[in-house]
Amino acid sequence: MADDQWWRDAPAGPIRVADGLRARSQRGEIARSWWSRRFLSVLESLGLGGRLDRGRRYARQGQVLSLSLSTSIVVGQVQGSRPEPYRVRIGVRAFTDEQWTAVEQALAGQALFLAKLLAGDMPEDIEDAFESVGLHLFPDDAHDLSMDCSCPDWQVPCKHLAAACYLLAESFDADPFEILAWRGRSRQQLLDNLRELRGGAESQRPEEREAPLTELLEGFWGSPATPPAPAGPLVAGAPDAILDQLDALPVVVRGRPLVDLLRPAYRAMVEEQR
């Protein structure tokens, strides 16, 4: 048989994989969280129903052999009908340090953002903070994504790319910080920067921020002022998350905000109860 007749002996379906990555959801929608559904909405808006259906089946059957995310790029391998797995790549533009600085300043303006992120949740209005500085956290359309696959299918996304996207959405369900890391900011770096910005929020009143603790003792036992109400419901999660929901205290001890000194105590109390 001539070499150009290879397709006559090609198997009708993919080569089944025993230990591939398998979607947790085996029926219905794959994405559970609003942020994962928001990511998949771009993919599903392309109207490629047949390929997306086959991509979901691939994801649920475990045809994706590997999937890894780093700044700006997701790479993976998907087993198709040929012996050699196909290489898939899904790219998105990472934000610059200057753009992230602007985003962090917008996020730090609301204590609830940091509290929810500390609890492993993605605030529903976090997109507003990005849009306020002219950026979009999620791709707006297919043009915001760079996708390619080594398979012979000319359509993008093919079923192999679709399978990778569905598994990527499930990974976003488990850890929303992966979306931010994809855009160029790691979990630790973002939280550290937001804590620092929140700790300096009281700089709008420098005369109070710089006042040493010894000058505040005289009125310590006086009638306290009514504390402001939190910006939203309290969020369970990190033991010190409540400190990020309240306005910064105008107290500095040895050059450090009082909130920073209270964090270890909150964490120690929780550890002692476990």
Rank of each mutant, 00 (worst) to 15 (best):
G47Q: 07
R27Q: 14
S33G: 08
L234F: 10
A174I: 01
L65Y: 09
S186C: 03
A268E: 10
Q105V: 07
V74L: 08
D173R: 01
V253F: 07
F39G: 12
Q273D: 07
D192K: 13
A102E: 12
S36N: 12
V78Y: 04
R38T: 11
M269H: 11
D148W: 09
R24A: 15
D148N: 12
S25C: 13
L246V: 10
G232R: 11
L107I: 04
A174H: 03
A12D: 09
L167M: 02
A211F: 00
R263L: 02
P11I: 00
Y166S: 03
Q245A: 06
A174F: 02
L167Q: 03
L217M: 15
D121A: 05
R24Y: 07
G49N: 15
A174Y: 00
W100N: 09
W100I: 01
I30C: 09
E218V: 14
A162R: 02
R185W: 00
E208V: 00
S36E: 11
G13W: 06
G62T: 08
W182I: 01
S70M: 07
A119H: 00
P250D: 09
D141A: 06
A23F: 05
D4M: 12
Q188M: 09
S70T: 11
W7F: 13
D175P: 03
Q79R: 10
A142N: 03
D260T: 02
L217F: 15
V259Q: 15
S171L: 05
D260L: 06
L114H: 10
D3A: 14
H160R: 03
G20C: 04
P206S: 13
F130K: 06
G76L: 04
D141C: 05
S70I: 00
G49D: 15
A169T: 00
L262F: 06
C158Q: 05
R93T: 03
R27I: 01
A108L: 05
L216C: 10
A236D: 09
L67A: 07
S186N: 04
Q245D: 04
V235A: 00
W221K: 13
S41G: 12
L191W: 00
P139G: 04
R93P: 08
W182T: 01
L46V: 05
W221E: 12
S203M: 14
L191C: 01
S132E: 04
D19C: 01
A248N: 08
P83A: 12
F172S: 03
